[in-house]
Protein backbone atom coordinates (compact mmCIF):
# COMPACT_ATOMS: atom_id res chain seq x y z
CA UNK A 1 0.00 0.00 0.00
CA UNK A 2 1.34 3.44 -0.89
CA UNK A 3 1.23 5.61 2.19
CA UNK A 4 0.40 9.29 1.79
CA UNK A 5 2.97 11.85 2.82
CA UNK A 6 1.74 12.25 6.34
CA UNK A 7 -1.02 9.88 7.42
CA UNK A 8 -1.64 11.93 10.56
CA UNK A 9 -3.04 14.73 8.48
CA UNK A 10 -5.71 12.49 6.97
CA UNK A 11 -9.15 12.22 8.53
CA UNK A 12 -8.79 8.47 8.55
CA UNK A 13 -5.98 6.05 7.87
CA UNK A 14 -6.14 3.84 4.79
CA UNK A 15 -7.63 0.39 5.13
CA UNK A 16 -8.72 -2.43 2.83
CA UNK A 17 -11.83 -3.04 4.95
CA UNK A 18 -14.93 -1.66 3.23
CA UNK A 19 -17.98 0.04 4.65
CA UNK A 20 -16.42 2.96 6.50
CA UNK A 21 -18.59 5.61 4.85
CA UNK A 22 -21.77 3.60 5.21
CA UNK A 23 -21.35 2.60 8.86
CA UNK A 24 -19.97 5.93 10.06
CA UNK A 25 -22.67 7.80 8.17
CA UNK A 26 -25.38 5.62 9.68
CA UNK A 27 -23.84 5.94 13.14
CA UNK A 28 -23.67 9.71 12.96
CA UNK A 29 -27.22 9.97 11.59
CA UNK A 30 -28.67 7.85 14.38
CA UNK A 31 -26.58 9.59 17.02
CA UNK A 32 -27.60 12.99 15.73
CA UNK A 33 -31.31 12.28 15.50
CA UNK A 34 -31.76 10.14 18.62
CA UNK A 35 -29.30 11.69 21.07
CA UNK A 36 -27.82 15.01 19.99
CA UNK A 37 -30.84 16.80 18.54
CA UNK A 38 -33.10 16.19 21.58
CA UNK A 39 -30.33 17.06 24.05
CA UNK A 40 -29.51 20.20 22.07
CA UNK A 41 -33.19 21.18 22.19
CA UNK A 42 -33.04 20.92 25.97
CA UNK A 43 -29.95 23.11 26.16
CA UNK A 44 -31.51 25.70 23.81
CA UNK A 45 -34.74 25.69 25.81
CA UNK A 46 -32.89 26.21 29.08
CA UNK A 47 -30.53 28.83 27.68
CA UNK A 48 -33.63 30.78 26.64
CA UNK A 49 -34.06 31.40 30.36
CA UNK A 50 -30.58 32.81 30.63
CA UNK A 51 -28.24 32.19 33.51
CA UNK A 52 -30.31 34.30 35.87
CA UNK A 53 -33.47 32.44 34.89
CA UNK A 54 -31.86 29.07 35.66
CA UNK A 55 -30.52 30.49 38.90
CA UNK A 56 -34.02 31.67 39.84
CA UNK A 57 -35.36 28.16 39.30
CA UNK A 58 -32.48 26.59 41.21
CA UNK A 59 -32.96 28.87 44.20
CA UNK A 60 -36.72 28.41 44.35
CA UNK A 61 -37.15 26.88 47.83
CA UNK A 62 -38.95 23.76 46.62
CA UNK A 63 -36.45 23.14 43.78
CA UNK A 64 -33.46 23.85 45.99
CA UNK A 65 -34.81 21.45 48.59
CA UNK A 66 -35.38 18.73 45.95
CA UNK A 67 -31.87 19.18 44.56
CA UNK A 68 -30.46 19.03 48.08
CA UNK A 69 -32.34 15.82 48.80
CA UNK A 70 -31.31 14.23 45.47
CA UNK A 71 -27.64 15.09 45.72
CA UNK A 72 -27.28 14.77 49.49
CA UNK A 73 -28.95 11.39 49.85
CA UNK A 74 -27.24 10.10 46.70
CA UNK A 75 -23.85 11.06 48.16
CA UNK A 76 -24.63 9.14 51.34
CA UNK A 77 -26.03 6.16 49.41
CA UNK A 78 -23.03 6.02 47.05
CA UNK A 79 -20.72 6.09 50.07
CA UNK A 80 -22.61 3.19 51.67
CA UNK A 81 -22.73 1.27 48.39
CA UNK A 82 -18.97 1.76 47.98
CA UNK A 83 -18.10 0.49 51.45
CA UNK A 84 -20.38 -2.55 51.35
CA UNK A 85 -19.81 -3.02 47.62
CA UNK A 86 -16.09 -3.21 48.34
CA UNK A 87 -16.67 -5.88 50.98
CA UNK A 88 -18.97 -7.80 48.63
CA UNK A 89 -16.43 -7.59 45.80
CA UNK A 90 -13.63 -8.77 48.11
CA UNK A 91 -15.66 -11.66 49.50
CA UNK A 92 -16.83 -12.77 46.05
CA UNK A 93 -13.33 -12.67 44.58
CA UNK A 94 -11.15 -13.88 47.42
CA UNK A 95 -13.17 -16.34 49.45
CA UNK A 96 -14.74 -19.62 48.53
CA UNK A 97 -18.07 -20.43 50.11
CA UNK A 98 -21.22 -22.26 49.09
CA UNK A 99 -23.45 -20.14 46.87
CA UNK A 100 -20.66 -17.80 45.81
CA UNK A 101 -21.61 -17.93 42.12
CA UNK A 102 -25.25 -17.32 42.95
CA UNK A 103 -24.36 -14.33 45.11
CA UNK A 104 -22.18 -13.04 42.28
CA UNK A 105 -25.09 -13.27 39.83
CA UNK A 106 -27.47 -11.59 42.30
CA UNK A 107 -25.27 -8.47 42.36
CA UNK A 108 -26.45 -7.58 38.85
CA UNK A 109 -30.12 -7.75 39.84
CA UNK A 110 -30.59 -3.94 39.96
CA UNK A 111 -29.32 -3.78 36.35
CA UNK A 112 -31.93 -6.28 35.19
CA UNK A 113 -34.92 -5.62 37.44
CA UNK A 114 -37.18 -2.83 36.12
CA UNK A 115 -36.98 0.16 38.45
CA UNK A 116 -40.74 0.29 39.01
CA UNK A 117 -40.70 -3.33 40.17
CA UNK A 118 -37.80 -2.62 42.51
CA UNK A 119 -39.65 0.47 43.72
CA UNK A 120 -42.87 -1.23 44.77
CA UNK A 121 -40.95 -4.19 46.24
CA UNK A 122 -38.72 -1.94 48.36
CA UNK A 123 -41.71 0.14 49.41
CA UNK A 124 -43.69 -2.87 50.62
CA UNK A 125 -40.64 -4.44 52.28
CA UNK A 126 -39.57 -1.32 54.19
CA UNK A 127 -43.08 0.05 54.91
CA UNK A 128 -44.01 0.15 58.61
CA UNK A 129 -46.05 -3.04 58.14
CA UNK A 130 -43.47 -4.65 55.84
CA UNK A 131 -41.13 -7.50 56.66
CA UNK A 132 -38.07 -5.35 57.35
CA UNK A 133 -39.93 -2.10 58.03
CA UNK A 134 -41.74 -3.63 61.01
CA UNK A 135 -38.42 -4.63 62.61
CA UNK A 136 -36.97 -1.17 61.97
CA UNK A 137 -40.11 0.43 63.43
CA UNK A 138 -39.53 -1.52 66.67
CA UNK A 139 -36.18 0.22 67.14
CA UNK A 140 -37.74 3.53 66.17
CA UNK A 141 -36.53 3.85 62.59
CA UNK A 142 -38.99 4.99 59.97
CA UNK A 143 -37.62 3.81 56.65
CA UNK A 144 -40.32 4.12 54.00
CA UNK A 145 -41.87 7.49 53.10
CA UNK A 146 -38.90 9.43 54.51
CA UNK A 147 -35.49 10.37 53.11
CA UNK A 148 -34.29 7.05 54.55
CA UNK A 149 -36.47 5.34 51.96
CA UNK A 150 -34.76 7.31 49.19
CA UNK A 151 -31.43 6.21 50.66
CA UNK A 152 -32.45 2.52 50.54
CA UNK A 153 -33.56 2.75 46.90
CA UNK A 154 -30.37 4.57 45.92
CA UNK A 155 -28.16 1.98 47.62
CA UNK A 156 -30.09 -0.70 45.73
CA UNK A 157 -29.46 0.81 42.31
CA UNK A 158 -25.90 1.96 43.07
CA UNK A 159 -24.58 -1.31 44.50
CA UNK A 160 -23.74 -3.11 41.22
CA UNK A 161 -21.65 -0.14 40.05
CA UNK A 162 -19.66 -0.18 43.29
CA UNK A 163 -19.06 -3.95 43.12
CA UNK A 164 -18.39 -4.35 39.41
CA UNK A 165 -15.80 -1.59 39.10
CA UNK A 166 -13.68 -2.92 41.97
CA UNK A 167 -14.08 -6.67 41.43
CA UNK A 168 -11.84 -7.11 38.32
CA UNK A 169 -9.01 -5.24 40.04
CA UNK A 170 -9.20 -7.40 43.15
CA UNK A 171 -9.00 -10.46 40.90
CA UNK A 172 -5.84 -9.06 39.30
CA UNK A 173 -3.98 -8.34 42.54
CA UNK A 174 -0.61 -10.04 42.50
CA UNK A 175 -0.57 -12.21 45.61
CA UNK A 176 3.23 -12.26 45.65
CA UNK A 177 3.19 -8.63 46.71
CA UNK A 178 1.02 -9.56 49.68
CA UNK A 179 3.35 -12.44 50.48
CA UNK A 180 6.32 -10.14 50.32
CA UNK A 181 4.57 -7.74 52.65
CA UNK A 182 3.78 -10.53 55.12
CA UNK A 183 7.32 -11.94 54.96
CA UNK A 184 8.75 -8.49 55.62
CA UNK A 185 6.79 -8.55 58.85
CA UNK A 186 3.62 -6.60 58.13
CA UNK A 187 0.49 -7.72 59.89
CA UNK A 188 -2.45 -8.71 57.69
CA UNK A 189 -4.31 -5.51 58.44
CA UNK A 190 -1.23 -3.42 57.56
CA UNK A 191 -0.85 -5.36 54.31
CA UNK A 192 -4.49 -4.77 53.46
CA UNK A 193 -4.41 -1.07 54.24
CA UNK A 194 -1.00 -0.20 52.79
CA UNK A 195 -0.44 -2.74 50.01
CA UNK A 196 -3.82 -4.00 48.81
CA UNK A 197 -6.06 -0.96 49.21
CA UNK A 198 -4.09 1.90 47.56
CA UNK A 199 -4.17 0.51 44.00
CA UNK A 200 -7.91 -0.16 44.39
CA UNK A 201 -8.76 3.41 45.31
CA UNK A 202 -9.23 4.75 41.74
CA UNK A 203 -11.68 1.93 40.99
CA UNK A 204 -13.50 2.54 44.26
CA UNK A 205 -13.78 6.23 43.41
CA UNK A 206 -15.04 5.42 39.90
CA UNK A 207 -17.66 3.07 41.31
CA UNK A 208 -18.62 5.71 43.85
CA UNK A 209 -19.03 8.36 41.15
CA UNK A 210 -21.09 6.05 38.93
CA UNK A 211 -23.36 5.08 41.83
CA UNK A 212 -23.69 8.74 42.79
CA UNK A 213 -24.60 9.85 39.25
CA UNK A 214 -27.09 7.04 38.90
CA UNK A 215 -28.68 7.84 42.25
CA UNK A 216 -29.14 11.51 41.43
CA UNK A 217 -31.02 10.74 38.23
CA UNK A 218 -32.97 7.74 39.51
CA UNK A 219 -36.75 7.95 39.49
CA UNK A 220 -38.64 4.67 39.24
CA UNK A 221 -37.27 2.82 42.25
CA UNK A 222 -37.47 5.90 44.48
CA UNK A 223 -40.90 7.45 44.01
CA UNK A 224 -42.80 4.54 45.56
CA UNK A 225 -40.75 4.42 48.75
CA UNK A 226 -39.98 8.14 49.11
CA UNK A 227 -43.37 9.46 50.18
CA UNK A 228 -42.71 12.45 47.89
CA UNK A 229 -43.39 15.08 50.55
CA UNK A 230 -42.37 18.53 49.20
CA UNK A 231 -39.38 20.01 51.07
CA UNK A 232 -38.75 16.68 52.81
CA UNK A 233 -38.61 13.65 50.55
CA UNK A 234 -39.19 15.06 47.08
CA UNK A 235 -36.43 14.30 44.56
CA UNK A 236 -35.36 16.50 41.65
CA UNK A 237 -36.48 14.09 38.86
CA UNK A 238 -39.97 13.99 40.38
CA UNK A 239 -40.09 17.77 40.36
CA UNK A 240 -39.31 17.69 36.61
CA UNK A 241 -42.30 15.38 36.12
CA UNK A 242 -44.50 17.70 38.21
CA UNK A 243 -43.38 20.78 36.25
CA UNK A 244 -44.07 18.96 32.99
CA UNK A 245 -47.57 18.02 34.11
CA UNK A 246 -48.13 21.73 34.81
CA UNK A 247 -46.82 22.49 31.28
CA UNK A 248 -43.96 24.48 32.82
CA UNK A 249 -41.50 23.33 30.15
CA UNK A 250 -38.98 26.05 30.96
CA UNK A 251 -38.88 25.16 34.65
CA UNK A 252 -38.54 21.47 33.88
CA UNK A 253 -35.72 22.20 31.42
CA UNK A 254 -33.91 24.35 33.95
CA UNK A 255 -33.90 21.58 36.57
CA UNK A 256 -32.85 19.08 33.90
CA UNK A 257 -29.94 21.26 32.82
CA UNK A 258 -28.78 21.70 36.41
CA UNK A 259 -28.85 17.93 36.87
CA UNK A 260 -27.06 17.34 33.56
CA UNK A 261 -24.43 19.91 34.51
CA UNK A 262 -23.71 18.19 37.79
CA UNK A 263 -23.57 14.72 36.22
CA UNK A 264 -21.26 16.13 33.56
CA UNK A 265 -18.91 17.33 36.29
CA UNK A 266 -19.13 13.89 37.92
CA UNK A 267 -18.22 12.16 34.65
CA UNK A 268 -15.35 14.59 34.19
CA UNK A 269 -14.15 13.69 37.67
CA UNK A 270 -14.27 9.98 36.78
CA UNK A 271 -12.16 10.60 33.69
CA UNK A 272 -9.64 12.62 35.71
CA UNK A 273 -9.44 9.84 38.31
CA UNK A 274 -8.83 7.30 35.57
CA UNK A 275 -6.21 9.45 33.86
CA UNK A 276 -4.46 9.93 37.21
CA UNK A 277 -4.69 6.22 37.91
CA UNK A 278 -3.18 5.40 34.52
CA UNK A 279 -0.22 7.64 35.32
CA UNK A 280 0.15 6.46 38.90
CA UNK A 281 -0.53 2.73 38.56
CA UNK A 282 -0.42 2.06 34.82
CA UNK A 283 -4.02 0.87 34.53
CA UNK A 284 -7.54 2.13 34.90
Amino acid sequence: MVEPVNPRLRFRQRSVIPGFGLTLGYTLTCLGLVVLLPLATLVVKASGLGFSGIWDVATDPRVASALRVSFGVSLLAALTASVFGGIVAWVLTRYDFPGRKLADAVVDLPFALPTAVAGIALASLYAPNGLVGAQLAKIGIEAAYTPAGIFIAMVFIGLPFAVRTVQPLIAEIDKEVEEASAILGASRITTLLRVVLPPLIPAVLTGFALAFARGVGEYGSIIFIAGNLPYVSEIAPLLIVIKLSEFDYAGASAIAVIMLGISFVTLLAINLIQAWSRRRFGYV
Binding site: L42, G217, Y219, I240, L260, S263
Partner: peptide, 21 residues
Protein backbone atom coordinates in the same frame (compact mmCIF):
# COMPACT_ATOMS: atom_id res chain seq x y z
CA UNK B 1 -18.25 9.43 24.54
CA UNK B 2 -21.30 10.78 22.72
CA UNK B 3 -22.68 7.28 22.16
CA UNK B 4 -22.35 6.66 25.91
CA UNK B 5 -24.17 9.88 26.74
CA UNK B 6 -27.67 8.39 27.32
CA UNK B 7 -26.26 6.30 30.18
CA UNK B 8 -25.48 9.43 32.17
CA UNK B 9 -28.80 11.14 31.54
CA UNK B 10 -31.57 10.71 34.11
CA UNK B 11 -34.48 8.65 32.73
CA UNK B 12 -36.86 11.51 33.42
CA UNK B 13 -34.66 13.90 31.46
CA UNK B 14 -34.55 11.34 28.63
CA UNK B 15 -38.32 11.60 28.41
CA UNK B 16 -38.32 15.37 28.83
CA UNK B 17 -36.06 15.99 25.82
CA UNK B 18 -38.51 14.19 23.52
CA UNK B 19 -41.38 16.24 24.91
CA UNK B 20 -39.35 19.34 24.06
CA UNK B 21 -38.81 18.11 20.49
Amino acid sequence: TLIDLPFSVSPVVSGLIYVLV
